[in-house]
Each structure stands twice: as structure tokens, then as C-alpha cells.
């Protein structure tokens, strides 16, 4: 396992996570650790339990057992929205945009601690709300511009193409000002040019101080952007290391290719 003394303080660390669906142990005593400021990869064959692990970390599915520490505090008892409020935002494997809201509204929704989202404030603090909306709008436009979606700001999100939806979803996650973003297959179903772009955005935002945990099947993506990679197979940890270590790990190759 990892040499904890060398790595900086982990922003996220989970140990002993378990989840069964009926008799199937989808996640069976899995652990993961994401170092502050890193881009950490999570790979594994189909059905290894990667997405389930994501769901357990963000508590979209409650774990049967296990601990999850985010920023040094246990979060496994918190509700998903509370975890998001603390700065851990997730995306979904198939991009989920709010179709009948504009691209801009998708972005604005993601802003945190909005005064205007409280029922009574709508009546008593209109000035403050308008100011917050202006600020959020500026920030949203900035992000949308950086990913080339600014021209689509007033279109319905449902009118976007698959790749654009991926971009919107990542941008929206960014809009929450998170400490950690969990990306579930950001490159799935995306054309090669856009994959490259997405990788560039991720590394750019990472240099700005954002930490990522990325599930991805595309090995080129994992190898080019990740600092560390965790491998999951049949719900268990198989290996952990730098991309180069993982590439040459015989157990990993076995799990992917068979004996």
C-alpha cells in the first residue's frame, strides 16, 4: 500500500468500503486515497465497481461499511447534498444536464450558498440576490468561455451535443468552487479532439489548485494526466501506484487481459 509519510495530506481517503446488492458484493473492502492537488485515476475492468465506489464516496449510495474522510472529517453519514456543499462535486458517467434549463441556468444553479435560493430571502433581500446573480453570471461566463461554450449560454442545455454536455457538466462542477471533483469517465463517448481538450482543461484546472479523482477507460487519458492510479477489480483494490508502475504491473495486465 501507499507510503503515507511521503504523500501530502490526502483530501479524500476511504477505507474498508463495502456494498452488496443482494448477494453480489459490488464493492468489497475497497480503499482509496486522493492526495491534495493531485489528479488521481481510478481504473479497472468493466464491472469492477468503480462507479459504485464513486457513489459510495459521494453517498449517492450508502455504504454497508467503511469510512470516508474528506478534508479530515468523516462524511459517510452526510447526505449527498451536504457532501457537495463541503466541496466535493461529482459528475455522472452519462452526462446529465438539465435539459429544459438554459446552459447559463445550469451553471448558475451550481453556485453555492446563494441567498436567493432561500424562500424568504427572495422577498426581503432582492438587492443582495441581484448582486450575487451578477457575480455568478460573470464567473459562469468566464468558465464557459474557457471551454468554448459561451456562445451557447442562452440555449437549452438539452440542445447540446454529447461532447458539449460533457463540457457543461465539468464546467458546472467547477462552478461549485469545489476542492475535489470526481469525474466519472470524462472521455467516454467523446471524439479524440475533444478528449485532448478535456485533458488540457483538467490539467489546467489542476494547476490552479483543484484536485481530481477520475474514472476512465481510456488509458491514454489516465497515463497522460494522472499522478497516481488506483486499480479496482471485482470490488477490491488490485494495485496502486504511478501510471508507469501500473502499466507494467503484471496483476493489472492479468485483470484486464486475462491469464
Amino acid at each position: 500500500m501507499t507510503d503515507l509519510s511521503k504523500s501530502p495530506m490526502p483530501v479524500l481517503s476511504a477505507t474498508g468500503l463495502m456494498k452488496s446488492f443482494g448477494g453480489v458484493k459490488a464493492v468489497n473492502d475497497a480503499s482509496i486515497e486522493v492526495a491534495q492537488g493531485s489528479i488521481t485515476g481510478l481504473i479497472g475492468p468493466n464491472g469492477a465497481g468503480k462507479t459504485t465506489l464513486f457513489n459510495l464516496l459521494s453517498n449517492f449510495i450508502e455504504p454497508d461499511q467503511g469510512r470516508v474522510l474528506f478534508d479530515g472529517e468523516p462524511i459517510e453519514r452526510l447526505r449527498p447534498y451536504q457532501i457537495a456543499q463541503r466541496g466535493m462535486t461529482r459528475t455522472f458517467q452519462v452526462a446529465r444536464v438539465l435539459s429544459r434549463l438554459s446552459v447559463m441556468d445550469n451553471m448558475l444553479l451550481a453556485a453555492q450558498q446563494q441567498t436567493g435560493e432561500k424562500f424568504w430571502s427572495t422577498w426581503f433581500l432582492p438587492g443582495r440576490i441581484a448582486q450575487e446573480e451578477r457575480d455568478a453570471r460573470d464567473r459562469a461566463l468566464e468558465i464557459l468561455e474557457s471551454v468554448g461554450l459561451a456562445a451557447k449560454a442562452n440555449d437549452y442545455a438539452g440542445a447540446l451535443s454529447g461532447g458539449q454536455r460533457k463540457l457543461l457538466e465539468i464546467s458546472r462542477a467547477l462552478m461549485t468552487r469545489p476542492k475535489l471533483i470526481l469525474l466519472d469517465e470524462p472521455a467516454a463517448g467523446v471524439n479524440p479532439t475533444l478528449i485532448k481538450q478535456i485533458c488540457e482543461y483538467i490539467t489546467y484546472w489542476n494547476r490552479q489548485g483543484l484536485t481530481f479523482l477520475v474514472i476512465e477507460h481510456n488509458m491514454d487519458v489516465i497515463m497522460s494526466i494522472c499522478d497516481r492510479v488506483w486499480v479496482l477489480a471485482e470490488g477490491k483494490n488490485l494495485a496502486e501506484g504511478t501510471p508507469t508502475e501500473i502499466q507494467t504491473n503484471s496483476q493489472v495486465l492479468e485483470a484486464y487481459l486475462g491469464k
Partner: peptide
């Protein structure tokens, strides 16, 4: 038309997304 209403519409569209963005659905 307020941010409050925006959260309602988001829930109508996809409540999982609203949760993932920190809204108490």
C-alpha cells in the same frame, strides 16, 4: 424566476444533479 425557482426546475429536470450540486432536494 428567482434562484429558488431555478432549484425547483432543476429538481424537475433531474434531482440527482440537483443533489450533486449541493441542493437539499
Amino acid at each position: 424566476k428567482s434562484p429558488w425557482g431555478r432549484v425547483l426546475k432543476a429538481i424537475r429536470e433531474d434531482e440527482e444533479v440537483a443533489k450533486a450540486l449541493g441542493k437539499n432536494v
